[in-house]
Design a protein around this nucleic acid. Structure first.
Lengths: 139, 139
DNA sequence: TTGTTTCTTGACTAATACAGTCGGAAAGTA
DNA sequence: TACTTTCCGACTGTATTAGTCAAGAAACAA
């Protein structure tokens, strides 16, 4: 529905990790991977993909790594989820695989409820910034 | 997260179809399959599984089929989702695959938000009955 | 009784999406 | 130069899910 993919989960955690180090120099992929228990080669792929979102930038070489280019308080969970799900497919409705395959023919009885769920969920996701998470607890 | 499995989607639509015919005699699997565009053999499996939930009952023979044994107004979307997801695995958190694999060690920074999302979503699911859907539109 | 219709059951196969890997190239630092 | 890091695209493996099949049991009709 909204995520549940490893890739998205790792993306969230990686960005969280970058936010913790915001203001410092770039953080290496290997460092994030280690702290968050994410397979390094896989994280390479993910962070690289995130660059196009404008949330992070990278630098190669010895002092290279990744850093946030937006303020942690300006990046919401919703931003990250939306971006990661855009590449993956997301289901348009709870009862249909895709809009085109809806047997209810444009008058889907589930769609109202589905929209309400979507709205409520993104109200929370868009109302929570990465900074909120950083200031939440330890880890 | 909450579903997005075909099986669950089909289950919802099958139950909706039964609700539309509530009060009449049993409805055949093949009938539901046809109307809702669900593979017949697959729907057999799904409805059979639903029997154990106490929402539907079946009858064999010429005048056989399935029928609801609870009132449509008494069955919520949440009931169906919970039942179908129980057999499948559901992720415990947005950022972790499973509680045990949480790198935040019991102090997960995502978990508060995740719980709020879960609460809001099921508030809607549990507040919507199958009857609500039947009285919603045509199809 | 016999035949037909329908559900029942469990095992089976097929597809596919996703997680994760690998090798080597490019870029930055010293 | 030597070294470290990201970059890129192709690749593999695997687990899950979708969906099928065949034989059998119950219910009913004639």
């Amino acid at each position: 529905m909204f995520f549940s993919q490893r890739k998205t989960q790792y993306a969230l955690r990686a960005i969280y990790e970058l936010a913790k180090r915001h203001g410092e120099g770039p953080t290496k992929i290997s460092e994030i991977a280690k702290v968050q228990g994410i397979p390094t080669r896989f994280l390479e792929v993910i962070l690289n993909q995130l660059k196009a979102s404008g949330m992070v930038e990278s630098k190669r070489g010895f002092y290279g790594g990744y850093r946030l280019i937006r303020q942690p308080g300006d990046i919401t969970i919703g931003d990250v989820l939306r971006y990661m799900q855009k590449s993956a497919g997301h289901s348009a409705c709870i009862a249909c695989v895709a809009e085109e395959s809806c047997p209810f023919d444009g008058n889907c009885v589930f769609s109202d409820m589905w929209k309400r769920v979507h709205t409520e969920v993104y109200k929370i996701f868009d109302g929570t910034t990465i900074e909120d998470l950083v200031h939440h607890g330890s880890s």
